[in-house]
Simulated assay, not measured.
Amino acid sequence: MTASSTSTLPVAITATGLTKSYGDKPVLKGIDLSIPEGTVFAMLGPNGAGKTTTVQILSTLIAADSGQARVAGHDLVRDADAVRAAIGVTGQFSAVDNLLTAEENLLLMADLHHLDRREGRRRAAGLLRRFDLTEVARKPVVTFSGGMRRKLDLAMTLVGDPRVIFLDEPTTGLDPRSRRTMWEIIRGLVADDGVTIFLTTQYLDEADQLADRIAVLDHGALVAEGTAEELKRRIPGGHIRLRFADAAGLDAATDLFGVAAPDREALTLQVPSDGGVPTLRAVLAVLDDASIEPEGLTVHTPDLDDVFLTLTGHSGSGHSGSGHSGFGHPGSGERAGAAAKESIR
């Protein structure tokens, strides 16, 4: 879904100036959000950034110190009961009863939602089918794998037919196959049911795969927001990598680009680029005019790992990096491409 298409959708979540402190330690420093219906919004951030606190506030589990928010059309404070009726929450750890079967867990949720017995059994059976848990429906959850437990946990969230679902690091600890299964389920909730997903994660590929928009939270403040591609373009470091058959070709090409970085051992040349087609065309045109033909070419653009590291000073796994590095100025990727063009003689 494109940024222009999401901007025309009704808004599922809005927040203005949300703050939260514990004692003299600020956890959220006045964050603003606007999340369209039927989209996936991912919040990235290192440990302690305030992601879980944001989810807890928006799901009415704790109160903000200041600020306003509306979820599913309801004021977070004045209409808290209506907010709770419209949302589902899946936390970092599976909230399932190990002593019950999968079916019993779902029926328990149906009772908590005050569904009659017939409707409760109908929803439980449908969710067991949807999550491929029918064959283990009457087995105790204690025997389930991590992936099965997370599927059941999400299925339990759906018993109440929520319009907005908060997923707080839902795939933490899952193996790659189980993670991808969860991704497919999340995509289906949005595409088939029109559900809005608020996702927090430290897996950058997860946000890249799922999210229509991504916000980066660091030390309680939103330091950037946009689509994955928009965020990547704002980070410098993109380049075109040219490979040559011999040193003569490499040297000739190096002379053409004042900002290029040659690697004589690998016979490659890196030309700064914003990843756009115009820059690529310009580089190829100059090589063609000089009758220089590279043996190979690859375009490298920053990924979300680069974005995360630049914005927060942390690696994508959440481990601390060399310190807070700040944020590359908007358009820095584009300027790198412009510099490459201007260096062409």
Rank of each mutant, 00 (worst) to 15 (best):
G30E: 05
D32L: 10
L33P: 03
S34M: 14
I35P: 00
P36M: 07
P36L: 12
E37I: 15
G38L: 06
T39D: 08
T39C: 09
T39P: 03
T39R: 04
V40S: 07
F41L: 07
F41I: 08
A42G: 09
A42S: 09
M43R: 04
M43D: 06
L44T: 03
L44A: 01
L44N: 01
L44H: 01
G45P: 09
N47Y: 09
N47K: 11
N47E: 13
N47C: 10
A49M: 07
G50H: 00
G50I: 03
K51M: 06
K51Y: 09
T53K: 05
T54G: 11
V55D: 02
V55N: 03
Q56V: 12
I57P: 09
L58C: 08
L58F: 05
S59E: 10
S59G: 14
T60N: 05
A64T: 08
A64Q: 07
D65A: 09
D65W: 12
G67Q: 05
A72G: 10
A72N: 10
G73W: 02
D75I: 10
L76P: 02
L76Y: 01
V77C: 11
D79W: 05
D79A: 09
D79H: 07
D79R: 04
A80H: 06
A80V: 10
D81R: 15
A82P: 03
A82E: 13
A82Q: 01
V83N: 04
A85E: 06
A85Y: 02
A85N: 05
A86P: 03
T90Y: 00
G91E: 02
G91Q: 07
Q92L: 04
Q92S: 06
Q92I: 02
F93P: 02
F93I: 13
F93W: 12
S94E: 10
S94A: 15
A95K: 00
V96A: 01
D97Q: 09
N98H: 09
N98R: 10
L100K: 06
L100H: 00
L100V: 05
A102G: 12
E103P: 00
L107A: 11
L107M: 12
L107E: 08
M109R: 11
M109A: 12
M109S: 12
A110W: 02
D111L: 07
H113D: 13
H113I: 14
L115N: 10
L115Y: 07
L115K: 08
L115T: 08
D116Y: 15
D116K: 15
R117C: 12
R117M: 14
R118V: 15
G120I: 00
G120M: 11
G120R: 04
R122W: 14
R122P: 05
R122V: 12
R122D: 10
R123K: 15
R123E: 07
R123H: 10
R123S: 08
A125Y: 12
G126W: 14
G126N: 15
L127I: 11
L128G: 03
R129F: 13
F131E: 00
T134Q: 14
T134W: 11
T134H: 09
P140R: 06
P140K: 04
P140H: 11
V142D: 13
F144E: 06
F144C: 09
G146E: 05
G146Y: 12
G147H: 00
G147Y: 00
G147R: 04
M148S: 04
M148K: 04
R149L: 07
R150K: 10
R150M: 08
K151P: 01
L152R: 02
L154Y: 01
M156S: 09
M156W: 00
T157H: 00
T157S: 07
